[in-house]
Design a binder for these strands. Structure first.
Lengths: 235, 235
DNA sequence: TTATGTGAAGCCCTTCACAGCA
DNA sequence: TGCTGTGAAGGGCTTCACATAA
């Protein structure tokens, strides 16, 4: 929010701006391409890839066009090449080192999540405030005390954090994480967190997701009832 | 996608259409109102509530206006009344009964998540395919075998499902859930799932969230480098 | 006077049709 | 001829200013 749009540096490939909605879909395309690669498929058309990603093909092509022109007209896309290009655009060529804050059920589940390693994300630290939990081994990691957060973050060179802590302490720990120099945070805590402009915060909120489902379910049911009422009136 | 916009039934309060973006924020307002209620606060202005929810006040007022006019001009909103109205609009007056599919680390973490019960969501069943896990007790629940899914869903009257299973079996289990009559599904599996039009599916995807963070972090760093380059040129 | 509720303008994303290229 | 890439049109969300009501 602070400074508006920096000009791109000469030489470095920084795209002007990928719309947030496209960005989210690009990660899905990347996964679909990974699956195709595993199957040994070498080429895909935008129709095929779009179907695999659950979108329509013009949308897919538009999304890809924000990155560049990586297909061949009349032919399609080379799977591995397109995959590499999307990875590069998303910054996945670098190795991301993730610290997980909170070693409760959720934190442990996340630490053991197989999807992390596969895409350049490595869990390098796991923290908890509870002395009973500190020192426990979870997979290859040993739980560190949160009071050592800054030191351990520096030692492990973590550059991303995942907050898996209760709502009451989330802001405090978020502040500690930022103080340690991390500027990319994914929070599972069901609270609104305040962060400085230079910090990227994303939230995953189960309660919100369920409430949105509830809204649609209630709506569908209400229109069912309405349809039945109309059917009765019609007879 | 099937039939376009049903007319609202006479008598029932069904709002025409809440924009998805507003809907997501309404759940945040609801949580903020809950916190205020717990503190004993009786009235809030749109400015105060907007600050607590991390949005600006015109946006908050516009969001609320999709539901109706529940404030008092010159005064503000009565916390409990507004909370009730939003709850009603989202369909949270009903009791939602959640079945969790998959009793691995994530499934267990979700089953024990305290945020569920507080908003009318009750976990009524927990399933797993692994015979070693079936029969285990997790909180108040005993893990049921997925082969009994339909029977247990009927017995427990579950009307929502959470998929916390590996990607490879997600589609298959999603189909089973739908076959059992559930039409609201929240999936944590990192795959694109195909569902019929009448089923509401929402996805939570950690890999996607981290990749989006990676994109922004890479971008911020690239423009830092650019800024440094410009600074050097300027000297 | 104060703070809500809302029409209208502006902006950004999505959609679509077709130009462009192998 | 076939499929990609994209400009332009369309639609929806956000913003803003102000009318409105207490």
């Amino acid at each position: 929010m602070s400074n508006s749009e920096e000009p791109a540096p000469a030489g470095a490939v920084v795209h002007r701006h990928i719309p947030p909605a496209s960005l989210a879909r690009l990660t899905i395309y990347l996964r679909a391409l990974g699956a195709l690669l595993a199957e040994g498929v070498e080429r895909v058309s935008s129709d095929e890839l779009a179907a695999a990603a659950g979108v329509n093909s013009p949308k897919l092509r538009k999304d890809l066009s924000y990155l560049g022109s990586y297909g061949t007209r009349g032919v399609g896309y080379e799977v591995s090449y397109l995959s590499d290009q999307i990875s590069a655009a998303l910054g996945l060529t670098r190795n991301w080192r993730v610290a997980i804050i909170g070693a409760g059920n959720l934190g442990k589940a996340l630490a053991g999540y197989p999807g992390f390693g596969s895409r350049g994300f490595e869990v390098v630290a796991l923290f908890d405030a509870d002395q009973m939990v500190v020192g426990q081994e979870v997979g290859w990691l040993r739980v560190s005390p949160v009071k050592d957060l800054e030191a351990v973050v520096h030692r492990t060179r973590a550059n991303m954090a995942v907050l898996a802590v209760p709502a009451e302490v989330a802001q405090e720990l978020c502040d500690s994480v930022i103080a340690s120099g991390i500027t990319s945070i994914l929070s599972f805590a069901p609270v609104v967190l305040q962060v400085p402009d230079h910090v990227q915060l994303r939230k995953v909120d189960m309660a919100t997701e369920l409430q949105i489902l509830a809204y649609h379910a209630q709506r569908a049911q209400a229109s069912d009832i309405a349809a039945q009422a109309r059917a009765r009136l019609a007879t």
